[in-house]
Simulated assay, not measured.
Amino acid sequence: MKGRDRVNKKILSIIILAVVLVGGLYYFTMVKGEETTEELVPENNVSEETNSETNGEDITEDFVPDISIGEEAPNFTLKNLDGEEVSLTDYRGKTVLINFWATWCKYCDIEMPDLQKLDKENEDLVVLAVDVMEKKSLVEEYIAEGGYDFQVVLDEDGDIAKLYLVSAFPTSYFVDKDGILLGGVPGMMTYAQMSQIVEGIRDGE
């Protein structure tokens, strides 16, 4: 019962923080006329064939995901840039920030240094960056140029993005130490916003 109460507190914390963040995103979009996400339509870094496959409508067509806040986050196994298999369940015992992104996404580009900082400064947290439907060589070059060393995995077919209902980049989800999906934030976050959510998760433990 206590375990369930702790989970409920975590979920409540993440929902409250997500509402605050989404409100901020709404402010930037409506008041300042700026977007904080980009639809799944790559620019010039991929082929026309891949371009059509990553359209925001196509990626979720005829697909019913098994994803629920407050339940165990759907596990997945993808290969990292070293060719090693990485699973979400590998990180049980740590909070996981799953970040769906692509190299052509300008808001992902802005967010990346903050993800790096968050990953470095929090030993109890892992940033798991899921690149969606791009060539390994392109992702390797981008990561090397940025000097990023958090975990990057390749969702080559876009199946995990479908599973997590991703329709725009960046999109982030937070998973607690027990593997419970706490919630998600559509759009770019700042380091302060990321840290606020992580602290909220800790306070709910």
Rank of each mutant, 00 (worst) to 15 (best):
138 L>G: 12
139 V>P: 06
113 P>C: 02
108 C>E: 05
111 E>H: 03
126 V>S: 06
137 S>G: 13
100 F>E: 00
107 Y>V: 08
74 P>Q: 03
96 V>I: 04
73 A>H: 00
129 A>I: 08
88 L>Q: 04
132 V>M: 09
90 D>N: 06
80 N>V: 04
71 E>K: 08
99 N>F: 04
123 E>G: 11
96 V>G: 03
133 M>L: 10
70 G>D: 03
76 F>Y: 00
105 C>R: 01
77 T>G: 01
115 L>K: 05
108 C>G: 07
121 E>W: 09
77 T>R: 08
127 V>L: 07
102 A>H: 02
95 T>N: 05
86 V>L: 01
132 V>I: 15
97 L>I: 12
112 M>T: 14
81 L>M: 09
106 K>F: 08
101 W>T: 04
127 V>C: 02
113 P>G: 06
118 L>M: 12
88 L>W: 02
107 Y>S: 08
71 E>F: 02
87 S>D: 05
142 Y>F: 14
94 K>S: 09
98 I>R: 00
108 C>T: 02
102 A>L: 06
111 E>Y: 03
78 L>S: 07
142 Y>I: 06
112 M>C: 10
101 W>Y: 10
113 P>W: 06
121 E>F: 08
120 K>P: 08
78 L>F: 05
90 D>W: 00
104 W>A: 03
133 M>I: 13
98 I>Y: 01
130 V>M: 03
107 Y>R: 12
125 L>E: 08
132 V>K: 08
117 K>Q: 15
73 A>F: 01
97 L>T: 10
108 C>N: 07
73 A>I: 01
82 D>M: 11
67 I>S: 03
138 L>D: 15
97 L>V: 14
140 E>M: 11
139 V>C: 11
107 Y>T: 10
88 L>K: 01
109 D>Q: 11
90 D>T: 00
135 K>D: 14
89 T>N: 10
120 K>M: 12
95 T>V: 15
135 K>C: 02
136 K>S: 15
71 E>Q: 11
106 K>M: 13
141 E>G: 14
128 L>D: 02
75 N>Y: 05
132 V>R: 06
142 Y>L: 07
82 D>K: 14
89 T>R: 07
120 K>C: 11
77 T>N: 04
68 S>R: 07
106 K>D: 12
90 D>G: 02
100 F>Y: 06
103 T>C: 09
